Computed example of a mutant assay.
Amino acid sequence: MNAKTALLLSFLVVFLTACASAPVPVPLRTEGKKRPPVSSDLKFSSFVKTDIDTVAEIHQQESFSHLRTLMEKLYRRNPREWKKGGQLSMESAIARAFDAGHDWRFPELNGKRGADCFYLAFQENYQGDRVLAFIAGMATMIMASYNEKTELYVLDELDPQKLYNSARNVEIAVWKLSGTRDSRGELFLLSNANDASNRNMSFEREFGKLIAQQDTLARIIAEKTNRTIVRAIQSVASAVFLPI
């Protein structure tokens, strides 16, 4: 039995002992009134989850909320993409991405994750859903920064460098989205519009929120664990995805 398993078992023992020994209040009978339900103030998560774990989970949930919004916005500007996946509607395409237990592994992406999904989204000969590839790239990068977990407990440790790198990778993805063109000079995916007749910068705001979520959590974890984040400075022309 390793140290982490032993520590977790000790938490379980404490929790079960507390549940067994905690007195259950019995409310007095009141004529003509029903006895109110008895509730326990003890929760398993209160023994095995720290405040930082809860904060991290909230940041992750918010990040994926922004990703869902971005996927919808990209589909609205590029409706041909969700149709490539054989979906009946934009809504079903979004639900398939966010509400199904697929671990972000899709047959049309050939098992690719992270940066490889981004490269697939901007390949000239790719015939699949480019929006799905782009969003899956960001989603799997963010999941990697959380060590592929959606629930965090006291024994889980997040790396602030991974969180920081994921934020920089989102920035690089935005640069590629707004600047990568096909052989005809057309953008692979439409996003922000900045012309006089059709100004739409809402994508930029959502990406900004997503980047801020990762950066803020990276700083929180770094200060909590006394770890230093190695900051990267890249130009748009030479930007490469950072490892996570």
Rank of each mutant, 00 (worst) to 15 (best):
T5K: 09
L8M: 15
F11H: 11
L12N: 14
V14M: 15
A20G: 04
S21A: 12
A22F: 06
A22L: 10
V24Q: 09
V26H: 08
L28W: 10
R29A: 11
R29N: 11
K33F: 13
K34P: 10
P37E: 11
V38G: 03
D41Q: 12
D41Y: 11
S46P: 03
I52P: 02
I52T: 13
D53G: 08
T54I: 07
Q61L: 14
S63C: 03
H66W: 11
R68H: 06
L70K: 04
E72K: 15
R76W: 08
P79S: 02
W82S: 02
W82K: 00
Q87E: 00
S89K: 01
M90A: 08
M90T: 07
M90R: 14
R96T: 03
D103G: 12
N110C: 15
R113C: 08
R113A: 14
G114L: 08
A115F: 06
D116V: 09
D116S: 11
C117W: 06
L120R: 01
L120N: 04
L120K: 02
Q123N: 09
N125W: 12
Y126S: 05
Q127N: 07
G128A: 03
G128L: 02
A133F: 00
I135T: 00
M138P: 00
T140D: 01
M141R: 04
M143H: 01
N147G: 03
E151Y: 11
L155K: 03
L155G: 13
D156P: 12
Q161R: 07
Y164N: 06
A167Y: 05
R168N: 15
N169Y: 09
V170K: 04
V174C: 11
T180D: 06
E186W: 04
L190S: 01
S191Q: 00
N192V: 10
N192K: 02
A193S: 15
A196C: 13
S197W: 12
N198Q: 15
E204M: 14
G208A: 10
K209M: 09
L210V: 10
I211E: 09
Q213H: 14
Q214M: 13
A222Y: 02
N226W: 01
T228R: 14
S235T: 13
A239C: 09
V240S: 12
